[in-house]
Amino acid sequence: MFIPVDQFEDRNVTITIDKQEFQVPEGISVAAAILGHGGHADCRCSFVHGEKRAPFCFIGVCHECLVEIDGKPNQQACLVLVRDGMHIVKQQVKEG
């Protein structure tokens, strides 16, 4: 879990995370929306055993932050910015 250092007066972007609606500041990443504003500690489950996983590197390398954005799976949450009306789903995909 992460905590904002500021109050973020302008929460003018509306998104959903797992169907729940949130108002978040513009310009932040999807990872920040999930971990810092959406009250979640993880982004997806692991592919083999289905363990909870959260971002590890925060620089686009580890791919632990893969989420579904507007119906498109496997998006790197740390490298995508929030957009008004965006639907984010924590990915629960297990490989066979």
Partner: peptide
Amino acid sequence: GVDAFLKSDGLVPQ
């Protein structure tokens, strides 16, 4: 990485 996250998103770890 968490330091970079602080820079871009203004968040600190719990």
